[in-house]
Design a protein around this nucleic acid. Sequence first.
DNA 1: CTGCTTGCAAATTGTTTGCAACACC
DNA 2: GGTGTTGCAAACAATTTGCAAGCAG
Lengths: 140, 140
Amino acid sequence: MKDLLQRLAERQWQMTPQRRVIAEVLAGEHVHLTADEILDRAVERLPEISRATAYKTLNELVALGEVSIITVGGRARRYDPNVGTPHQHLVCEGCGLIRDIHPAGQTGLSLASPESFGFTLTGVDVVFRGLCPDCANNKS
Amino acid sequence: MKDLLQRLAERQWQMTPQRRVIAEVLAGEHVHLTADEILDRAVERLPEISRATAYKTLNELVALGEVSIITVGGRARRYDPNVGTPHQHLVCEGCGLIRDIHPAGQTGLSLASPESFGFTLTGVDVVFRGLCPDCANNKS
DNA sequence: CTGCTTGCAAATTGTTTGCAACACC
DNA sequence: GGTGTTGCAAACAATTTGCAAGCAG
C-alpha cells in the first residue's frame, strides 16, 4: 500500500508545512502514538506548530479514513496510520507499548447471523493483551 | 457464575450503602454504562452519593478484577460487570449501544508464537463494529 | 482511638472550539 | 477578496486527588 503522504496528495488534500509534519510523524513511526506524542515529535521538526492544529489535522485524517483511532485502556487515544493493511494489535499492559500484528492464519473473524442482532457489521477490532519481554522480567 | 454482590461479599469487601448501590446498578444492567450513567442510576436510589465516590468505587472494582473497562471509540469509559463469562462486544457506531456476544463457534482466538514477539499473553478483546437495525434505518 | 470511606471542591488530563490573523490562489 | 488554515486562549468533558469530616470496630 502507498505511503500516507502519497495517498493524501492523490486525494488533493491541501498540504501545509504543519500537515506534512503530522503526516510524516504518523507514517514514520511503527508504534501508535497519542496526540501529545505526535505533537512532541512534530514540534521537534516544526517548533511553531500548535496543539490545536495538531488535533484538527488528526481529526481530519480520521474523517478522511486515512488514519484510525485505537483506544486500548489508557487515557489518551492513539492514532493508527496503518489503514488498508488489515492487522491486529498487541498491547503490553506493563508499559503500554503497542505492536502491529499481521495475522498469518485465518483473519476471517465473523459473526454468525443469529448472533448479530440484525446489525450491519462494518469491522472487527482485535486486541491481544499481555506483557512484553521487558515488562515480564521486571515484574515482581 | 455468581452474582457480583455475592462475589464481593465472599471477598470480604467492605460494604456500604454507596458501594452496594453501585454494584447493584452494574449487576442489574445488561448494557455497558459510562461512569456518568452509573452515577445517574445510583443517584436515583441513593441521592446523596457523590461523583467522587462513584469513581473511587468503580476503580476499586476494576482493581479487584470484578469489573472491567471497555473503551470503544467514544470519549467515556464503559464498565463491564460481566467478567468470568468470556464474551465479545458488538458496538453500534450510530448510537453507541453495546451488546454482549457469547460466541457459539470458535472462542480460541490465539496467536502463533512467531507472531507474539515474546509477549506473555493475558487476554484478547474482540469488538465487532456495525450499525444496529435502528441506526441503519435512520441513516441517510 | 484508629483506620477506612465519603463528599466537596479543586486540580489534572485530553480534546474541542471561537475567533482574529494569515497565506494562497 | 474569498476560501481555507493556523494559533492562541478559553471552554469542555472525563477523571483524579487533597483533605476535612464521618462511621464502624
